[in-house]
Nucleic acid binder design. Structure first.
Lengths: 137, 137, 137, 137
DNA sequence: GTGGTCTAGACCACC
DNA sequence: GTGGTCTAGACCACG
């Protein structure tokens, strides 16, 4: 679990951590079902307080990205809840990004190419992982 | 200038205001060169503190979306600064959105269709402005 | 806001607080829209840490019982979200209560009478409050 | 003894187990006097630690739902202790449920119908047992 | 050894 | 003034 937190950034640490973990899952670096480091371990590794990691894990659990097994620590969920009101949030976020992109001279093709590139890098990790998660023998 | 602020949203008011103004420019509702209400006017209209509006205007000016003329007050800029480090931010934001979308079951076509839709609505408002993007002096 | 916490009880303080606030809303003692004490105020009054109150408020906000206005503190929501998966939880809880009641010799009439009594005391506070919330002059 | 434990639920395993056993008794699936699996058997069947099952059995014994005979192992009690302070707990639990139900829009008839349904399913399993509730010696 | 809870006290962003 | 974040360190329930 390689995570980099930026203490200068105004985004709260627990949110940065939450985002990085989502990225890692999306990119396939953290496979569904895979165990994550202990709250204390990760806290020590990152040099932050355990409660900060705890908050990130709790948020991810609430969002359905992580599950917490009663006996052993925290793991990536095996499947993720469908959109729900996520689409609305997505539209809002995209509208802002497209507005800024358009104003700053990024044309439609360029913008969509970027979207495609990012989707192929981050948006498919969990799906492909689910298929080929057996031993390749 | 029709702006709706959500007092119960966790996004700071000044940021909500900033975002809405960007959207209006992107959508073409606020044309380049168009004058905006004064800080006091807008604050009164929205029922918020003048400092809040001030902060939003200052941020937008710093980002190059607005210009402040000592005599003519605040107006939408006539041309907007090119990408610079905006692309980096865009990539970061998109990577998070694509990761979440992929995990929540939004496939590539759906995602790209949504991107296109939003771009065509918000990302083209200043198209005409881009043509005449000479020096605004 | 009269709340009693039991330090001996094994229910976490923040949950006890959460429950008590739900009861007060249900009973009509805390009217929709009414402001609640500050996190710090309530913490001082109860003799607990501010983070404990914070956690209770955050939970209640997430559940839709409270709203947090950006400028001023916390208030009771004006209307509450519909059931969603609450009914499932309700059924599970009731099944356990009915099983224990039956085994301990509480017959159906007695049980239902108790349910009715509690519903009339706690389950109607917000609805009646919404109607008659004007001045009675 | 068919029991399903949810490892990702926030309810402790021993409590889930205790609740399920109460439900089975209430529903009549486990008859008064019937023998239960040994701690080890049930632990193996459920894939949990024996201490967990032990804890659930001990709790149920203390509550009067189970009896432990040195020779015959653990069995469902033949009669159950009357209310005592159970009514107080019942009232507390019901008050919270009614408050939440009322606020979430479940009206009195719906609520009571649900109570009745659950009582008829779970609250009547030991009816016959109550008749012969003499001393179990 | 795991996560959950709580404390006392600090700093900061927002309004 | 508000709530939000973070820290360092403690204790506890669970398994």
């Amino acid at each position: 679990m390689i995570v980099q937190l930026n203490l200068q950034c105004d985004v709260p640490l627990y949110l940065q951590l939450r985002n990085q973990i989502v990225l890692q899952i999306g990119e396939g670096l953290a496979q569904p079902g895979e165990r994550l480091p202990t709250v204390r371990e990760l806290a020590a590794q990152l040099g932050v307080n355990a409660m900060t990691v705890n908050k990130a894990y709790a948020l991810l659990k609430q969002e359905g990205y992580l599950v917490q097994d009663r006996r052993a620590g925290t793991a990536v969920a095996k499947h993720f809840p469908p959109a729900a009101d996520f689409t609305a949030k997505l539209e809002r976020d995209l509208s802002l990004l497209t507005a800024e992109s358009g104003l700053r001279g990024i044309d439609e093709e360029t913008f969509l190419a970027l979207c495609r590139k990012q989707y192929r890098r981050f948006g498919t990790g969990a799906r492909t992982a689910k298929e080929g998660s057996g031993c390749s023998l």
